[in-house]
Design a binder for these strands. Structure first.
Lengths: 226, 226
DNA sequence: ACGTGATTTGGCCGGAAGACCAAGAGGCCG
DNA sequence: CGGCCTCTTGGTCTTCCGGCCAAATCACGT
């Protein structure tokens, strides 16, 4: 909840400093474009309209910028999805809205979520655990939504919800690697399309085996496993 | 003067130099672990059991190693999937087998496919186009398989096949970010589970709206678009 | 206006990166 | 044996990175 990880003076929490804001914005854009390691602190500083020394005053190291950016990504994602799902009380519908909000943030929002997802390797050993925990909170948030939707009884009963989350998040997160704003599809359209794929599947109703539910049941207990 | 990879002629097949092999293997492992930019040529050389100068003799620049590795990734992927789908003539079943082969290569094979997918940003401007074309060949390969499966009439008739490919590849490729060999699930199990999700969807058969096919139809023509 | 702490400046430093090469080792064949 | 081509060695050269700092500047309460 508190602000980033400032080492020196007590940064006033709550309202983010506009200079910090500019730094994270510039860093996000550059990290997304070229990756963390290929970006220099000088570039970040220039992108934020300041000199390298000034950046150092805010963040003691480049790693600190990355960590702050990722924490921001988690915070933004949780916030965006939370706000989006408030529009309905139906747990299944909430999944659809949450998916849409997540993808819109990923494609149109700032770059913090993208960096969180695609530059995890760049995290220094020491900071990994903290970010991992934050990220875990976001995943648990989704698991909760999935569990509630599952509780309605409208989904298949035999589902490994963690696998379902990885499946859906994978499909959605991958969009960031190919999405182009001028290609005629909005993130919302893509998200809704993917939602429909997820919910109903790609095989024609007529061409399905008789006992689909049994198929899913079998997936939960692979042959020869516990 | 070695031939590195080069799209046109050159070495026909299989006769890759063992030293080149060791370089690409070491580079792949390091690029996957820390990313391209964070890996030094000295580390690659050491990983391959040679001195930096020797590496330079094979590949004039670090970029060249990346390009060669990515081309290798495409080649391996096409090869693995091609071999896998030969086991059946049913286009729908082929998708399942292809998905499994792709994920097994990504999780258990060498790291070239992973690097191809997750270090695309690191490609130097000049080499991007070539690798993009190779990668496009692999995507077109999948599009062909999808089209044939669609042609059987067993899938929903209203599908944007490119979007379907991005959907499925996204879900599968993302596995590489969380898969751990000792977590109890094999890549084949994961792929087959995802295949079932893809084919039949997650909503219970009983809880579906009456006209699902119409829903898909509507996705192809978003409101307000031509 | 003035002092004080917060912030910015512009440059410096040690080190490591990628690229490169002249000289040598190795092996193959005439 | 001796020439010749392939490949390796061990190091250098230049560039630029991340981190750092002392001094200058600013903002603002009193």
């Amino acid at each position: 909840m508190t602000n980033t990880q400032s080492s020196a003076g007590g940064t006033p929490e709550g309202a983010a400093d506009p200079s910090d804001e500019r730094i994270l914005l510039a860093a996000g854009r550059l990290f997304r474009e070229k990756g963390f390691a290929a970006t220099t602190v000088r570039e970040i500083a220039q992108g934020a309209g300041m000199l390298p020394g000034s950046l150092h005053y805010r963040y003691a190291s480049k790693d600190d910028v990355l960590v702050a950016l990722m924490e921001r990504g988690v915070k933004r994602a949780i916030s965006a999805v939370t706000k989006a799902i408030a529009a309905t009380r139906d747990p299944v519908e909430r999944l659809k809205l949450g998916l849409r909000a997540h993808l819109e943030l990923l494609c149109q929002g700032d770059d913090s979520l993208y960096v969180l997802l695609y530059d995890f390797r760049s995290l220094p050993e020491g900071a990994r655990e903290g970010v991992e925990r934050s990220r875990g909170r976001y995943e648990a948030f989704w698991d909760g939504m999935l569990y509630e939707a599952w509780g309605t009884g409208r989904s298949r009963s035999a589902l490994d919800l963690e696998l379902v989350r990885q499946f859906g998040m994978g499909a959605i997160n991958w969009v960031a690697t190919w999405y182009r704003p001028d290609a005629g599809r909005t993130p919302a359209q893509i998200a809704d399309t993917f939602w429909t794929y997820l919910a109903f599947g790609l095989m024609a109703e007529a061409a399905r085996p008789s006992d689909v539910e049994g198929l899913f049941q079998k997936l939960l207990t692979p042959p020869g496993e516990k």
